[in-house]
Write a protein that binds this DNA or RNA. Structure first.
Lengths: 160, 160
DNA sequence: CGTTCATAGTTAGGTAGCCTAACAGTTAGG
DNA sequence: CCTAACTGTTAGGCTACCTAACTATGAACG
């Protein structure tokens, strides 16, 4: 199993990082507790927003995101994605349309309300987080900023 | 509402940080999927381990952690803590004993198996994480290491 | 063409973890 | 004492996730 004995410094860093993430979950939980949109739903909406830049409502080729793709992007299984989407649809935040090219597939798009909801929810959470960051020193903020791309890389690793 | 217009850089950092954490949840999820102990249970066990350094089995004053304290440390409500503890107890990983000084209270301690379980689970997760970190550059690792205390501060903010 | 295999989503049923509300027992104060 | 405050547990409910089974469409091939 243990092909790598792994150097102790690396393991220590791994441990500390895991610890930090584990605690951060409660931070996220608190941010998400602020109302209306659950964490999962906000994630889903945000993903939809990122995937369909802005533009068109109806027309073109790539309008909407397929359920399977949503699931993959969110790191969940397809039925879980379906479930979320149905809830969003019922809430009037997303729309499901048949794919003209493949009638097995479903294309999911944000409604205007969905777009507004994710924007306002994001804004509110950002404000709260900014308030927390405000209590840090400049150096601390700089250190945090420097690490974010690294964390991004780590997260990207997982997609592979 | 918006007493603070808040400087745009701070908001951007807040947004990026939130984003990083949001994605990291999937990382944590993957790490925790590796078997036996759920995330919540590992958190609980780890907390118990941290709170009762090592030492005695039965004796002294501070042996064990009270349910309310566990809940506070984990950022959950008391009934949720009770639920976790009962599961751990059934699994033979923790023990519940009446507090000799206050019969309302319950003192929770790890069993030998509990201690072993948290150690091995941690070790396995650390190894996986170390493997991921191995793919980073030295600079990246340094940046990450520098940010961890900052994230720790942020998390500590919440306890207050 | 028509069978067969693969792909896309949905439905059904189950689990974990969290919450609030209601309850029981203990301690402490008037 | 008797009441108020505190510590846990129980009961009931919700969200989000999972696997397995099903439906419907598409695609490949003889």
């Amino acid at each position: 199993m243990n092909a790598e004995p792994a150097d102790p410094g690396l393991l220590a860093l791994a441990q500390d990082f895991r610890e930090a993430l584990r605690h951060s979950i409660y931070l996220v939980r608190r941010l998400d507790a602020d109302g209306e949109l659950s964490a999962a739903q906000l994630s889903t909406l945000k993903m939809l927003m990122d995937s369909s830049p802005a533009s068109a409502g109806a027309g073109a080729s790539g309008s909407g995101v397929r359920v399977g793709e949503i699931a993959r992007n969110l790191g969940v299984k397809v039925p879980s994605a379906t479930e979320q989407i149905i809830k969003l649809e019922r809430a009037g935040l997303a729309r499901r349309e048949p794919d003209p090219n493949d009638s097995r597939a479903v294309r999911v798009t944000l409604t205007r309300e969905g777009r507004a909801a994710v924007e306002s929810a994001n804004e509110r959470r950002n404000t709260v987080m900014a308030g927390i960051l405000l209590s840090l020193s400049d150096d601390d903020r700089a250190a945090l900023a420097a690490a974010l791309p690294v964390i991004g890389k780590i997260n990207a690793t997982l997609q592979a």
